[in-house]
C-alpha cells in the first residue's frame, strides 16, 4: 500500500525555500565591477555577434526572401566592417542572434550579443544596464485613427478608449498626458504591435498610440491603407540607438564614429530613402512613406546620443 502522507512533503518545502534563499543571495551579492571590452572579446574570438529582430520593419527584419534587412541592420554591418578594419583582422565572422523586446537587454548585458541595432529606444532606465550609441532615428508616440474618426488631437481622446502596447515608453507618455490634463482616457493595454493594431481595427479602441513609425508601417500593411491616418503631435521625443555593453568606452567611440561617418558621407540619408520612402520586399511590397521630420533631418546631418 502506498502511503498518502508522503514523507517528502516537508522536504519539498525545505528545498523550495532553500532555492529561493540561494537565488536571493546570489542576486544580492554584488560582483566587483569589471571592465568588459567588447573589442578585446572580438579580437580573441574573431567573431562579432549582432542582435537582430525578425519583424521590426523597416529597422531589422526578415524580408520575403528570408534575408535579414533593415535600416538598423545595415548600420550594424557598417560597424562590423569598421571593427574589422580597426582591429586589423584578416577575417571577422558575423554571427546573428534573434532578440525580442524582452530579451534584448539581458542578452547584451550578459555578453551573448555584442551590438543590438533595431528599434530600441535609448532611455534613462535602460542606461543602468546597458550603453547606447549615437541615435540613428527619432520618433515619438502619435495616434492612429480611422480617417472618418472625430479624433484629431490628444484632447479629442477625452472619455474615449485608446490602446497602447504595455511596457512601452508610449504607455508612460499616455498615462502622464491623461493624468496631467485630466482627460479621463480609458487606456487599453496590448501585448504587442500586432494585437495593438487589431484592437483599433476591430473598433474596440478609438485610437492606437505608438511610435509613429510603427503606425506608418501598420498602415502600409493594413487591408485598406486609405482608411487610416496618423494624427496628433508626438507626445515625446524617442531616440533609437544601438545597444552595447555599459561603460565600454572604446567600443562606443568606434560605433559613434561609424555612424558619424555614415552621416557625413550621406550614406545615412541614402539608407533613410531606401527604407522609409521606397518599396520594401515585405509581404510582396510595402511602402512606409513616412515624411522626414525636421528633427530627423537634423539628426541625419549631425548624429548625437542626446535624449530628451
Amino acid at each position: 500500500m502506498i502511503s498518502h502522507r508522503a514523507p517528502d512533503s516537508l522536504s519539498t518545502w525545505r528545498a523550495a525555500i532553500l532555492i529561493a534563499v540561494i537565488a536571493l543571495l546570489v542576486s544580492c551579492g554584488k560582483p566587483p565591477p569589471k571592465e568588459i571590452s567588447t573589442l578585446d572579446k572580438i579580437r580573441t574570438t574573431g567573431v562579432i555577434t549582432l542582435g537582430i529582430r525578425e519583424t521590426s520593419v523597416p529597422f531589422s527584419y526578415l524580408d520575403d526572401a528570408q534575408q535579414q534587412a533593415g535600416y538598423a541592420w545595415e548600420i550594424a554591418n557598417r560597424v562590423a566592417t569598421a571593427v574589422k578594419r580597426d582591429l586589423k583582422l584578416d577575417t571577422l565572422a558575423i554571427h546573428t542572434f534573434v532578440v525580442t523586446p524582452q530579451t534584448r537587454i539581458p542578452l547584451v548585458a550578459n555578453q551573448t550579443v555584442d551590438l543590438e541595432c533595431s528599434s530600441t529606444t535609448h532611455d534613462r532606465e535602460r542606461e543602468r544596464q546597458v550603453g547606447f550609441s549615437s541615435s540613428f532615428y527619432l520618433t515619438g508616440p502619435r495616434m492612429l485613427v480611422r480617417r472618418d474618426s472625430p479624433v484629431r488631437d490628444w484632447s479629442d481622446l477625452r472619455g474615449k478608449r485608446a490602446v497602447v502596447s504595455s511596457g512601452t515608453t508610449a504607455e508612460l507618455a499616455l498615462r502622464k498626458l491623461d493624468r496631467e490634463r485630466g482627460l479621463d482616457i480609458e487606456i487599453m493595454l496590448a501585448k504587442d504591435i500586432g494585437e495593438n493594431f487589431m484592437t483599433v481595427e476591430t473598433g474596440r479602441a478609438a485610437a492606437s498610440v505608438q511610435d509613429d513609425v510603427i503606425l506608418y508601417s501598420n498602415i502600409a500593411r493594413a487591408r485598406d491603407p486609405s482608411a487610416w491616418q496618423v494624427v496628433g503631435a508626438p507626445l515625446m521625443r524617442e531616440a533609437y540607438a544601438c545597444m552595447l555593453r555599459k561603460g565600454d568606452v572604446p567600443f562606443k567611440r568606434l560605433v559613434d564614429a561609424t555612424i558619424a561617418e555614415m552621416a557625413r558621407s550621406g550614406e545615412l540619408m541614402q539608407l533613410y530613402t531606401k527604407y522609409f520612402a521606397s518599396s520594401l520586399a515585405v509581404k510582396g511590397g510595402v511602402r512606409i512613406d513616412q515624411p522626414l521630420s525636421d528633427d530627423m533631418r537634423e539628426l541625419l546631418r549631425q548624429p548625437n546620443d542626446r535624449i530628451d
Binding site: P106, S166, G167, K191
Partner: peptide
C-alpha cells in the same frame, strides 16, 4: 490573459521589467 491586455503576474512583470530597467529581478 496578458495577450488581451489583462495584466496578471506575467504581464505586470513584463511591464515592470521594461519600466524599471531591472528585467531579471
Amino acid at each position: 490573459a496578458m495577450t488581451i491586455g489583462l495584466m496578471e503576474l506575467t504581464g505586470t512583470s513584463r511591464q515592470v521589467s521594461e519600466f524599471s530597467g531591472h528585467p531579471f529581478e
